[in-house]
Nucleic acid binder design. Structure first.
Length: 255
DNA sequence: ATGGTTGCTTAGCAA
């Protein structure tokens, strides 16, 4: 089973690239973030012609997540079901052949100490509580997405530059660790323990040409799934050329 | 300490 997660930063602008990724990598499941369109504007027909179902939780202008899949989704959820008031589309989940897959777009956090920062930490603790209430660490579960957290400095090209940012702050890293402690393995980390492979580069300041990157996208898998990791890589070529997303797709294969 | 770029929406926000 091949799972890809990709923050496309606008499905409208990225559709040609997305169709290319589907054709080239043939994922069984593809988690998307930052669609920036409402459900009705999602290119369902193009995705369908490419051979994929689309489970969409869209939003105008900001956010929006989806799961594309060869198999029909079952038991779709579009919220963490915790009764919280949340106007932001950042969570969608479905079952595919006995594997529960969640596509998440964790809040960026703006700047440390801001309202957006508090929202990020609260959102992460809600996700942890969601797992406590609705998931089982001994079942097959993969949380895939843009976590907006580089969990340690192995995932940061220039740690000194980024150490005080919302992507590397200790409070965010602690929240990420509490997800792992619940019973998840960072699949990409497990396959590349040395780090030095990144999934996001700022559009500004020549981020990509200088490889000033961070790995903030990934797949968190429960143990039974993580035991079956066969391969994990970043499709760095997708960050090249005209109109790239600022994120590259992260691919993980399970036997 | 600021600013740099991209996308959505149309001057300003979010990332």
């Amino acid at each position: 089973m091949r799972i890809i997660t990709w923050n496309v930063n606008s499905i409208r602008t990225r559709l040609p690239r997305l169709l290319g990724v589907l054709e080239r990598h043939e994922p069984d499941v593809m988690c998307l973030q930052e669609l920036k369109v409402v459900d009705d504007a999602f290119p369902t027909l193009d995705i369908s012609q490419a051979g994929y179902h689309a489970t969409v939780f869209g939003q105008k202008t900001y956010n929006g997540v989806a799961i594309l899949s060869k198999e029909q989704p079952k038991d779709v959820e579009r919220s963490m079901d915790d009764g919280a008031e949340d106007s932001q589309a950042r969570f969608v989940a479905a079952d595919f052949g006995g594997v529960r897959v969640i596509s998440v777009y964790v809040p960026n956090g703006g700047s440390v100490g801001s309202d957006k920062w508090e929202y990020k930490l609260e959102w992460l603790s809600r996700l942890k509580r969601h797992l406590d209430a609705h998931a089982d660490p001994s079942a097959s579960l993969a949380i895939c997405g843009d976590f907006n957290i580089a969990s340690d400095d192995r995932d940061v090209k220039n740690p000194d530059k980024w150490k005080d940012s919302v992507l590397c702050h200790p409070d965010g890293r602690a929240a990420f660790q509490s997800l792992l402690d619940w019973g998840l393995v960072d699949a990409f980390r497990a396959h590349h323990p040395d780090g030095g492979i990144y999934s996001w580069w700022d559009y500004r300041m020549l981020g990509f040409p200088k490889n000033d990157g961070l790995r903030i996208d990934g797949v968190l898998a429960t143990r039974c799934l993580a035991d079956r990791i066969e391969d994990a890589f970043v499709d760095r070529d997708e960050r090249k050329g005209k109109q790239p997303s600022d994120h590259a797709p992260v691919v993980v294969d399970f036997s």
